[in-house]
Design a protein around this nucleic acid. Sequence first.
DNA 1: ACCTTACATTCCACTGTTGACATGTCGAGG
DNA 2: CCTCGACATGTCAACAGTGGAATGTAAGGT
Lengths: 184, 184
Amino acid sequence: MSLRYAMLGLLSERPASGYDLMKRFETSLTNVWPATQSQVYGELGKLAKAGLLEVAAEGPRGRKEYAITEEGLAELRHWLTEAPRERMRRSEAMLRVFFLNILTPLEAVTYLSTEAERAAGRHAGLKELEAAVDWGDDPLSVNGRLALEYGLRFTAMYEEWARWAAEQVQEKSKRGNGTTGDAN
Amino acid sequence: MSLRYAMLGLLSERPASGYDLMKRFETSLTNVWPATQSQVYGELGKLAKAGLLEVAAEGPRGRKEYAITEEGLAELRHWLTEAPRERMRRSEAMLRVFFLNILTPLEAVTYLSTEAERAAGRHAGLKELEAAVDWGDDPLSVNGRLALEYGLRFTAMYEEWARWAAEQVQEKSKRGNGTTGDAN
DNA sequence: ACCTTACATTCCACTGTTGACATGTCGAGG
DNA sequence: CCTCGACATGTCAACAGTGGAATGTAAGGT
């Protein structure tokens, strides 16, 4: 259901064709809500039929430029303010953690260390992004910066957690291994 | 694709029927990989046909107890060690942040503060869980504790970020509002 | 004139997930 | 003996998301 709001949100800045929209998904929203072409065009049709968007202009190559309607803007505002936030449910990463015990301690530590490395890599990537983009005062920049900061904090947190977890596993394996005659 | 590994993982501890499995999903895995009954039974059939599981015993009421096979265990290990981790892509929360500018600064600050509250609430809930469960030395407890710590760190990070973001929005709105005659 | 690249839309097949519905059996307590 | 709750499996329709193929037009360079 979020795709429609992503589209309404992008169109609230300025009108665009499906093609334009795709590019904007690829640049600004890749990291928060990727979408494919089939999805975008399909949803564009539905939203127009529902009156949340309208065809503002037609151009060459059958280009249809869509603009958000008052109704669409109201819907978007409603989503931002009233709609129930759905909490993050699935995490493949944590699912793996749950079953780490079927690996040897060494393998588990390796896994967790790799995760830490990957997080560090992503963190560095975001840092680069921060340096590369010239952050203006336009709304997209302002909000993008907030989201970026979230990414930065998330990756830092994840890296620390993974290193901590690796340590835990290591210690546990030492304790369980060193004293062969430990009580039950 | 992760559902199958969640099931293999649960069955690697001990055999279970579809019904048993459902309960174990609801208890231990609700927060990392929820599953519905239709999914579980469907996947159970597929996994059995693929030779990753086998019907170890049959009981009353048509009960079929599934056990993981050597092949299934190998597949699970492979997933844990070799399989490419897919990184977190979608975040409804960050999508909302991207479009916060269509709200008034006050509304945006309210939204972010509410998010902070919610994160704090979930953090408290996890703390309670930590206190309530008697954490043994069994593998499920050990790994569960690692995942729980992740949840704790995540919710703490998110709360802090949301408070920080609210502050940013507030400051920006003051700067843009207070000095009516500010240059461009 | 020709060719390539960018623009632009539409359709389709497949997988994963949800939620509801259907169907039935066993065991325990009244 | 009977009924109710727990046990137990299965099917279906719908939707969201993925990836790719098909189709074609306009513009720019050589």
